[in-house]
Design a protein around this nucleic acid. Sequence first.
DNA 1: TAGATTGTTAATCGATTAACAATC
DNA 2: TAGATTGTTAATCGATTAACAATC
Lengths: 210, 210
Amino acid sequence: MEDKEISQAVISRLPRYFRYLGELKDEGIERVSSQELSDIMRVTASQIRQDLNNFGGFGQQGYGYNVGYLYDEIGKILGLHEEHNLIIVGAGHLGQALVNYMNFERRGFIFRGIFDSDERLHGTQIRGITVRPMREMERFVKDNDIDIAVLTIPKSSAVEVAEQLVSCGIKGLWNFAHVDLQVPDDIQVENVHLSDSLMKLSYNLAPHDR
Amino acid sequence: MEDKEISQAVISRLPRYFRYLGELKDEGIERVSSQELSDIMRVTASQIRQDLNNFGGFGQQGYGYNVGYLYDEIGKILGLHEEHNLIIVGAGHLGQALVNYMNFERRGFIFRGIFDSDERLHGTQIRGITVRPMREMERFVKDNDIDIAVLTIPKSSAVEVAEQLVSCGIKGLWNFAHVDLQVPDDIQVENVHLSDSLMKLSYNLAPHDR
DNA sequence: TAGATTGTTAATCGATTAACAATC
DNA sequence: TAGATTGTTAATCGATTAACAATC
């Protein structure tokens, strides 16, 4: 539906628009202007209009935007109108936490399998999902139409596991391991580097700034 | 030590420099040029030099940078040379996962207390740290010189808890709740919005781009 | 129709990259 | 000294903001 490449800066803001629109919708609000949204979200109205217009004209002059419609459209842009099949690789605390966090499923991100190298965990269940040995992973990805693998494993094994996953056709990696993965151009990697985030907070706490 | 305000774009890159320098150091490499680092990290040499020079001249013409020295200096800039006292608010799966992740402690981020509103958890221990009732939180923050509170609670309670924490003198919030916290200017908030991250991945998986 | 607000172009601002003189 | 590489200024690129004509 789109022509030109859209910058990641814009994409990064879409989930936040989506969240605020969802809240407005829940409050029963039907229409919103870029200026009203600007006041709530604390970004410029100009940026909101500019961002949205990357994807088409969702608003109407003199009226603003229909909340429900815009919410749905942004959801579609983000790919939330269709289900994603996920596996978790690494059944440690973080992996378990993600499996147990129900809100992902509510948005269509469904955990289909969990894999771990620790054989003591094999056969145990997390929220009804069986933990399987690593050697079954590739077969499982192919057989179950998995698009996203969540890497909650130590950095030491992440690079190798990522390669395996790429070779069996995974398209997206949600990487919590503290390492940069080198993958082909058509594979998407989204990193969550928690310690980087904590260090940034630490910097901002120190006396340098203001 | 610094004059002008440094952009968050630069700060965000520092932990990554720090990580790569740590790896070089572990490999026993003593010196590195911006060009070599550029090749490894896949950013321009120009950006590396520009970034580092925000904080002072760490290199030497004709030589490059001393790995160990630069590593230490970036560590100091990030505030990793001193300990931070943390509390976790919300002892659910995610809170537990963070407490159990030892690498934060290795960098000087020490978990001192855990708080939760569920009284069935009170008195239980996570990695030797007792889970306490919410009503003890404010006293604890004041008495134990806590700088950072980690919010791993549902969005419904996050705003209120953040206010309490601000009122008892917390300086930093590491916010995992899916809500934007409004706090005074001198309080630092670092957000980890996992579902936003997953939605971004979902967007990039969809057919729009290339 | 008059008022409101978008879509979009133009202006500004900031961040990245290139270039090179300084210097080890 | 000659070679290498930084620190830093200048040029470019991209993202944000401002302005306003189009239009509901």
